[in-house]
Structure formats: structure tokens, C-alpha cells
Design a protein around this nucleic acid. Structure first.
Lengths: 138, 138
DNA sequence: GCTGGCGTTGACGCCCGGGGGAAGGTTTAC
DNA sequence: GTAAACCTTCCCCCGGGCGTCAACGCCAGC
């Protein structure tokens, strides 16, 4: 299989495949004419890469999974190195979520304070119209 | 006050101040010699900018707050435009947090599945040593 | 009058990942 | 024979927020 076919079957581009090869992530054998030659195993590796990217992994983070598959394991995450990446990613996500929640809390605090200040200002400038003092219309 | 002093008092750099001016965020009057001239009000604006940046606002998002202060309001968030930015930011943060949580859940699912697969494999390859069959040492 | 420390403008660099796109040359396929 | 697919190499880009020169002007002290 040549690069165009592989790209199409994996739903990516030839440009991306050359880039992965440049990273050493998905090296290709070469046919006599210099064309890159791929097989079904490479398709499997590529699908693993794309799947992990969809979940938010960077290309470097997919490397252990790819190498695990290439080493003959049934799944990309059958190796300890892959599990470590999972754990690191979970920690990273937790950290990021925590920081965002903290930021959210700070912004929400500011927002509520500002809203209260605005309401108090409005109340002092324009005293509330009481139903008992002005019972009827408008 | 000149640019160096303002930068130091606000804990930033002259480069940043020129950049803010370039954005129209913090325009400066000019002294006769062409030097930028700032006053205490500018320091206040600048502190507002830096405070918002610390909470995660981009420079453009600080603009309504700065203009609110410049319009003579007591706080940067005394204006409706600022409150809208707060609300937009809160929504943005909520969205981001939700997406991260989703990603985290997916990764966690993969991780747990992989760990179970590993444990089952280990159990099948090497049957558990039972206390009753091998009660003593090692 | 000279050094040093401020200031001015403008322009380029950078960081980060993940490629996009074009130029210029083979090889293959119909 | 020619179009499509492939090869390599190269630069570009996206956003934000500045850093870092370069080349020059202004002012104080000695």
C-alpha cells in the first residue's frame, strides 16, 4: 500500500503521514522506486495514533502505544509505558481542571460582587417604589 | 511619571506598556521631549489589567474594564460591558471544564480497561499462588 | 564633552504543535 | 502522452504576549 491509499483509509493526509515518519513515529519501508510502502499493521498503528489524538493526546504521547503495538502486543495500551502515559495524562487533566475551576470561582466571585454593587447603587439612587405608597398603575 | 517607573510600580516591563499602548489599551500622553507621561490613574488602569490577566483574561477582554474606569466609574466592573465579559468568561470556562472532564472520563475508561486486561492476562499466565497449597516462605 | 542610563521607534524572534502548501523533479497508470 | 500520484525541501501559519536587538534622542552628573 502506498501513502495515498493509507492516508485515505485512515482518514488523514499524506502530509501528516510524512510528518509522522519525520518524527520517527511511523517509519515506512521503501519500494524500489523510492515510494513509501505500508501494510495493514501500519494502518493499525495509524489508527491507534488517530484514536489517541481524538482523546487529546499529543503525538509524542502516542509513541509508547505505537511502539507497544509494534512490539507485537495485542493492544497499544498493553505495555507499562502506555499505562504510565495514561496516568500522566489523567494527572495533567486533573491539574488543568482544578486550575480552571479555581479561575472560575475567582471570576464568579468578582462577578457576584460587581452585580451586588450595581444593585445597591441602583437601590440607593432610585428608592424602591413600594406597593403601599403607590398602589396603582405604571 | 515615566514609563520605567510605571512599569516598576506595576510589576511589569516597559515593553509590555508600549505594547498596551499599541493596542490602544493604555494610551499615554507625551511630555515635551516625546517621553510617555503617566499618572496615578494610569497606574490604576494598569493594575486592573494585570489583575484580570492573573485571573486568565486576555488583553482584549480587559478593555471594557479599562474603559469603564477611564469613564470615571469607581470600579472596572461597574459597567454592563464588563459584566458581559464576566458572563462570557464564565461560560467559556464552563465549556472548557466540561470538555476536559469529558476527555478525562474517556481516558480514565481506557485506562481502567487496559489495567483490567493486564491483570486478567497476568492471572491467566501465572495462576495465583494459593496460601493453602504453598503456605510457607518466599 | 563624555559616559551612562533613561527614553523613542521599528522590526524580527519565539514558543507550541501539527501539519498546509508550493516548487521542482520522478514514476506510475490509463 | 499526459495526468495523477509520488518524491524532497523549503517556508508558512495560528495566537498571545511580549523579548530582544538596532539605531537613535534626551538629560544628569563629573
Amino acid at each position: 500500500m502506498r501513502i495515498g491509499e493509507l492516508a485515505e483509509r485512515a482518514g488523514t493526509t499524506t502530509r501528516a503521514l510524512r510528518y509522522y515518519e519525520q518524527l520517527g513515529l511511523l517509519p515506512a519501508r521503501r519500494a524500489g522506486n523510492g515510494y513509501r510502502a505500508y501494510d495493514e499493521g501500519d494502518l493499525r498503528l495509524l489508527r491507534e495514533i488517530r484514536m489517541l489524538q481524538d482523546v487529546g493526546f499529543g503525538l509524542e504521547e502516542t509513541r509508547p502505544f505505537v511502539e507497544c503495538l509494534r512490539a507485537g502486543h495485542p493492544e497499544g495500551d498493553s505495555c507499562p509505558a502506555s499505562l504510565e502515559v495514561y496516568e500522566r495524562k489523567l494527572a495533567e487533566l486533573d491539574d488543568c481542571i482544578a486550575r480552571l475551576r479555581d479561575a472560575r470561582a475567582r471570576v464568579a466571585g468578582q462577578f457576584e460582587r460587581a452585580v451586588r454593587a450595581r444593585d445597591e447603587l441602583a437601590a440607593s439612587e432610585q428608592p424602591p417604589r413600594c406597593e403601599l405608597t403607590r398602589p396603582t398603575k405604571e
